[in-house]
Simulated scan of single mutants.
Amino acid sequence: MTTEMLRSDAERRLSKKALNRSFWTWYHGSITGYNHQVMEGMSFATAMVPIVEDLYDTEEEKRDALQTYQPLFNTEMHMGFAVVGITASLEESKARGNEAVTPDMINGVRTSLMGPLAGMGDSLIPGTYVPILLSIALGLSAGGSVLGPLFYIIAWNVTMLLFVRFLFTRGYRLGVNSAKLLVGRQAMAIRESMVMLGSIVIGALAATWITITTSFTIDLGGTHVVDGEEVANQLHLQDTLDGILPGLLSLLLVLFAWFLLAKLRISPPLVMLIFAVIAFLGVLLGFFDPGLTSY
Score class of each variant (00 low, 15 high):
residue 193 S to A: 15
residue 141 S to H: 03
residue 169 T to M: 07
residue 192 E to Q: 14
residue 200 I to V: 15
residue 153 I to T: 08
residue 197 L to V: 14
residue 191 R to A: 09
residue 184 G to Q: 05
residue 184 G to P: 08
residue 196 M to D: 06
residue 167 L to W: 01
residue 143 G to L: 04
residue 172 Y to F: 09
residue 169 T to N: 12
residue 146 V to Y: 13
residue 164 V to P: 02
residue 169 T to D: 06
residue 144 G to C: 14
residue 138 L to I: 11
residue 178 S to K: 01
residue 173 R to I: 09
residue 137 A to Q: 00
residue 147 L to S: 08
residue 201 V to W: 08
residue 170 R to N: 07
residue 167 L to H: 04
residue 192 E to N: 14
residue 188 M to Y: 07
residue 137 A to E: 01
residue 187 A to W: 05
residue 178 S to T: 05
residue 163 F to D: 02
residue 144 G to N: 13
residue 137 A to W: 05
residue 154 I to H: 01
residue 176 V to T: 07
residue 171 G to H: 00
residue 173 R to T: 08
residue 196 M to C: 08
residue 171 G to S: 01
residue 135 S to C: 11
residue 154 I to Y: 00
residue 182 L to P: 02
residue 143 G to K: 08
residue 206 A to I: 15
residue 162 L to P: 02
residue 204 A to G: 10
residue 165 R to K: 14
residue 202 I to R: 04
residue 140 L to V: 06
residue 174 L to Q: 07
residue 197 L to Y: 15
residue 190 I to P: 01
residue 162 L to D: 05
residue 184 G to R: 05
residue 186 Q to A: 13
residue 168 F to K: 05
residue 205 L to D: 15
residue 188 M to F: 07
residue 194 M to R: 02
residue 176 V to H: 09
residue 167 L to V: 02
residue 177 N to G: 06
residue 132 I to F: 12
residue 167 L to Y: 01
residue 149 P to E: 03
residue 199 S to T: 08
residue 197 L to W: 12
residue 182 L to K: 09
residue 186 Q to R: 15
residue 148 G to F: 00
residue 141 S to Q: 02
residue 172 Y to V: 02
residue 137 A to Y: 06
residue 201 V to H: 06
residue 140 L to I: 03
residue 176 V to W: 01
residue 206 A to D: 09
residue 166 F to W: 15
residue 173 R to S: 08
residue 169 T to Y: 01
residue 139 G to A: 06
residue 193 S to L: 14
residue 145 S to H: 06
residue 157 N to F: 04
residue 176 V to P: 02
residue 150 L to Q: 02
residue 197 L to G: 12
residue 204 A to W: 15
residue 159 T to C: 11
residue 175 G to M: 03
residue 134 L to D: 01
residue 184 G to T: 03
residue 206 A to Q: 11
residue 157 N to E: 06
residue 205 L to M: 14
residue 180 K to L: 10
residue 152 Y to V: 00
residue 186 Q to E: 12
residue 155 A to V: 01
residue 161 L to G: 09
residue 154 I to M: 00
residue 183 V to W: 04
residue 192 E to T: 15
residue 204 A to F: 15
residue 184 G to S: 12
residue 171 G to V: 00
residue 196 M to W: 06
residue 146 V to E: 13
residue 138 L to A: 10
residue 161 L to R: 13
residue 133 L to A: 03
residue 173 R to H: 10
residue 158 V to H: 00
residue 203 G to A: 11
residue 170 R to C: 04
